[in-house]
């Protein structure tokens, strides 16, 4: 049986001046999966996601989403995807409700559908009481949630999330996870970038680890983690060294003095 791919990336490159931010990334994301994209700061995750979603033109390489070329047919691709970008630059002078209305209508949903879905999403994300405030007055967590609601409004087939749980309260995190599970069970694909290993391990069935703009590990969660944790697999893949705590012994100074005094007594 042939695999249906939600996203296929081949030989993706992007340079910013002298810096090679993405240096030849290949990705194949099976449809209907929860896919984790990991990497240390500056590994090229956000740049890769920006290129996959059509916000940044690659220097080289191809990107196919649901079988469509992002750069040949961006209109069709964008109709089928939802994105919560890393930097949430929203329309500051719309209220939360107005923003969702705007996005829904822009996606050509009829008014009743927009209203119905908008209120449901606001309710699930705990934003109903704050939805008439201007986005400019939203907290960081609220901005993340309203951005997620905007990305979900049209029930996308592929959803890209860049640090979706950052600054979000635990109850909302739980609701968002349920919401995302529902989406995946319905056949959608979620590509998810985060630094919280426990969340990625519990949510994702596939994972790719980037470092210095290159894929350093990729596969099913079981294949990448083996018998250990995702955090260990990540540390091994990016070649992280353990911190020499002894060099910071002054941080434990007060406690060390007390322990020493106790020993003398």
């Amino acid at each position: 049986m042939s695999i249906e791919w939600a996203v296929q990336v081949q030989g993706l490159h992007k340079c910013f001046g002298d810096k090679h931010a993405v240096a030849g990334v290949d990705l194949a994301v099976p449809a209907g999966t929860f896919y984790g994209l990991l990497g240390p700061n500056g590994a090229g995750k956000s740049t890769t996601l920006s290129m996959i979603t059509g916000l940044l033109r690659p220097d080289a390489g191809s990107v196919m989403v649901s079988g469509m070329d992002v750069w040949a047919d961006p209109v069709a691709v964008k109709a089928s995807i939802g994105v919560v970008p890393e930097t949430l630059l929203l329309f500051e002078r719309l209220s939360g409700r107005e923003l969702l209305d705007y996005v829904g209508r822009l996606r050509r949903l009829d008014r009743n559908t927009v209203t119905e879905r908008r209120e449901q999403l606001l309710d699930v994300l705990g934003l109903t009481d704050e939805a008439d405030k201007l986005v400019a007055d939203f907290s960081q967590g609220m901005r993340k949630k309203i951005s997620l609601a905007a990305a979900l409004l049209h029930a996308p087939r592929v959803l890209f999330l860049d640090e979706p749980f950052e600054s979000v309260d635990p109850i909302s995190v739980r609701h968002i996870r349920t919401l995302l599970d529902t989406l995946v069970h319905g056949g959608a694909t979620i590509i998810f970038s985060s630094h919280v290993m426990a969340t990625v391990q519990s949510l994702c069935d596939h994972v790719t680890i980037l470092d210095h703009g290159l894929v350093v590990a990729s596969g099913t969660m079981a294949a990448v983690c083996g018998d250990g944790s995702l955090e260990d697999a990540f540390a091994t893949a990016v070649g992280a060294e353990n911190l020499d705590a002894a060099s910071l012994s002054w941080l434990a100074g007060q406690r060390a003095i007390e322990v020493e005094a106790d020993a003398h007594d």
């Binding site: 059509g54 961006p74 691709v77 964008k78 109709a79 630059l89 996005v103 822009l106 905007a150």
Partner: peptide, 9 residues
């Protein structure tokens, strides 16, 4: 502008 670009192909 990214909101426009992402919401309307």
């Amino acid at each position: 502008f990214a909101v426009d670009a992402l919401a309307s192909g």
